[in-house]
């Protein structure tokens, strides 16, 4: 079965990203397809490469990047939500005249249409949030 996943909260403050990660791992293990993981609201903060959690803690951004690399996941960060919160890729950095970018490997920035498309294409849309 084809899943769309929505993550509405950033890492660490809420359990949303952790729960989604466990869910996605279990779904992949069972042979399901993850059509897309869409990061919205503060969820876009999962996509910043600049987080440095303590060494004995999990690094959620690395976990997502690793999972994306291993399983070819499509990790989409909402552009409007990301601009508000300072999550930029190289293109966005140039477009807005910023001096740095921070989008982690395996993530891409795109529009809200990607969320709607996930709702249309996926058999199930599962949302994790506050």
């Amino acid at each position: 079965m084809k899943f769309g996943i929505v993550i509405n909260e950033g890492p660490y403050t809420h359990q949303a990203s952790d729960s989604a990660l466990q869910f996605v791992k279990a779904a992949l293990h069972k042979g399901h397809e993850i059509f897309r993981v869409f990061f919205y609201h503060d969820g876009v903060n999962n996509g910043t490469s600049l987080g440095v959690p303590p060494q004995d803690d999990r690094n959620l951004t690395l976990e997502w990047s690793g999972l994306a690399e291993k399983h070819g996941l499509d990790l989409v960060v909402c552009v409007a939500a990301a601009q508000r919160r300072g999550v930029l890729d190289e293109d966005e950095m140039g477009r807005h005249g910023k001096s740095a970018n921070n989008l982690a490997p395996g993530f891409r920035i795109s529009g809200l249409g990607q969320l709607i498309e996930a709702g249309i294409q996926a058999d199930r849309l599962v949302t994790f949030g506050d």
Partner: peptide, 15 residues
Amino acid sequence: LESLEVVLIAAAFDQ
């Protein structure tokens, strides 16, 4: 606010 932003985009998808 961000729900409203989704809805405005969704309107273009003929759902």
